[in-house]
């Protein structure tokens, strides 16, 4: 027993060592390049300094477009998530349906947003449109699941009480199910919007609109001082969104 345990330990160590060595062999990591990169990084950063403040209009426009992508993308996700959430809920849909819809939603969640955005740019061209479609698609994977959980988390007793009183299906949905679901749905949607906004910031890097588009444009045209301003703006926006997240968590906890 002890011996075989030792062997297992040795084998695991050997496998890890092999993996790390293999990684070094396949990339062009060289100590000399790493050392000579030091001055180049300094030079690169110095070309970003001082950030060019004349791009304020681009920053404002880009931020506004990012906001629009997040808003419309969230709206699209809500519209898709209502029917998918109903179909994915155990209480509303038969097992065959809710299991397959849940699998579908998990698959959607598994596809990275940037990949969807790149495909959409290929399909519909540059601009905010592919960004909106990509956000709506990607966010549905999470929101549809959360809506289904909100439906399934509802207490049955008051629904049965209204049924016993003769209330019809729609009346039960409106007066017993919805009041229980609404706060959960509102919370999940707002949190998803916050995530969408965060993720929309960099969508422009693949050409899907928003403030990230300017970073990509300025880096490609070697206008590093302008790229620096936009990057700073993105950092500030991320901090602002983080603040919004903290406030939301406080409000909903």
């Amino acid at each position: 027993m002890k011996r075989s345990g030792g062997w297992a330990g040795f084998l695991t160590g050997a496998v890890f060592a092999a993996i790390v060595l293999w990684s070094f062999a396949t990339s062009d990591m060289e100590l000399s390049r790493l050392l000579s990169a030091g001055p180049r990084i300094v030079e690169f950063l110095s070309r970003m300094m001082p950030p060019d403040p004349t791009v304020v209009t681009e920053i404002v426009d880009g931020t506004a477009e990012t906001l629009r992508i997040a808003i419309l993308g969230t709206l699209g996700a809500v519209i898709l998530s209502v029917p998918l959430g109903l179909a994915a809920s155990e209480t509303m849909a038969p097992p065959v349906i809710h299991r397959s819809v849940r699998t579908l939603l998990a698959l959607i969640r598994a596809i990275p947003l940037l990949l969807v955005a790149m495909l959409m740019v290929g399909a519909v061209g540059l601009g905010p449109m592919p960004g909106i479609i990509a956000v709506a698609f990607h966010a549905t994977g999470m929101l549809g699941k959360f809506y289904a959980e909100a439906i399934d988390g509802v207490t049955r007793a008051p629904i049965e009480a209204l049924e016993s009183a003769g209330a019809g299906r729609l009346a039960r949905l409106r007066h017993a199910i919805w009041p229980q679901m609404a706060p959960v749905v509102a919370r999940d949607t707002i949190f998803r919007f916050e995530l969408n906004l965060r993720e929309s910031l960099i969508l422009g890097i693949v050409g899907a609109g928003g403030i990230g588009f300017y970073i990509q444009t300025y880096v490609r045209s070697f206008q590093y001082d302008k790229a620096a301003s936009v990057t700073l703006a993105v950092i500030l926006l991320v901090i602002a969104i983080e603040g919004m997240n903290v406030a939301l968590r406080r409000h909903f906890s």
């Binding site: 209204l162 009183a165 003769g166 209330a167 729609l170 009346a171 007066h175």
Partner: peptide
Amino acid sequence: NGRLGRMSTFAAL
């Protein structure tokens, strides 16, 4: 909610 069973579908909704 006790009245819903005595109302039309639309009014109850």
